[in-house]
Amino acid sequence: MATNNPPLLEVRNLRVEFPTRRGTLLAVDDVSFDIAPGEVLGVVGESGAGKSLTGNAIIGLLEPPGRIAAGEIRLEGKRIDNLPYEEMRKIRGARIGAIFQDPLTSLNPLYSVSHQLVETIQTHLPLSASAARARALELLKEVGIPGAEERIDHYPHQFSGGMRQRVVIALALCAGPRLIVADEPTTALDVSIQAQIIALLKKLCREHGTAVMLVTHDMGVIAETADRVAVMYAGRIVEVGPVRDVIKHAQHPYTKGLMGSIPSLGVRTERLTQIDGSMPRLTAIPKGCAFNPRCTARGERCLVERPDLMPAGASRAACWLHDARGVGAPVPLARETVNA
């Protein structure tokens, strides 16, 4: 992908906080990344890593009491994180499209598909009702809904899961957005349907030049779709780089462990690689590197000093292993972690 163009989306030092009675929880901590026009950026992580919150912060749909505490989000150079609700509403849909995990909850069950598409098109584009309907039909054909002329007047419950997700994609593409934030778009679908949806998403983005931020926990989906990938852990990006490098030559110990623990159809081994322990709760993020209690390569420095992203191979990783001063004296894992 063209990297010399100015980025379409710039996220700088984003922090998302949740004030609670027992103090403020930091769910997204100092996250920065860019997405170039037409690029697919995969964001992976396990549940609670903050990947969905990052996506929601970009489209301005953070659920209160969650709030952006610091940082900037710029779309085509213009700040969008501090816009009033009404202005953000105009950007959302027109310039940023959104696709969510469950296609049944992102469609209104009381209105026909044509109604929902036409409404969205007319909100963002100056088209007459009949022109909007013609565009809706065109979109449904484009996302591969067979018999679109008939099905356009059907209600969401008359579509199957895969077809519903196609409608949601059509809805996201309505006003020709520059960026689509897709949050687990294939997680609710069966594997055979998943492959169809991924192929569709890829094709549409290539044809329209739309950039995609693909949020998922499924490394397989990322491997097939993304150009670059950002791996998140406990609210921070721990590694970011071209998808091939991150998958084949992971630099951060967490990414390595994550890649090893995915069962693949390679050599059958007695045991899978496992990362002992589990991700820390937001109430108890460890000092230093958040991954240190589970990291077999940890040293004294990891316990006290928090690493930022630094060059590592073809990627960038937040790990002292890639720093000239290294991790310091090795510290073995605590026994509780192994059993956690």
């Binding site: 594997v191 055979s192 998943q194 492959a195 169809q196 991924i198 192929a199 499924d218 490394m219 397989g220 989906v221 491997a223 097939e224 998808v243 091939r244 998958i247 084949k248 890649m259 995915i262 693949s264 159809l265 390679g266």
Partner: peptide, 14 residues
Amino acid sequence: TIPDLDMTGRQRAP
């Protein structure tokens, strides 16, 4: 339909 994690370039046949 199994995703290709080895990046062999095998395309999932939808």
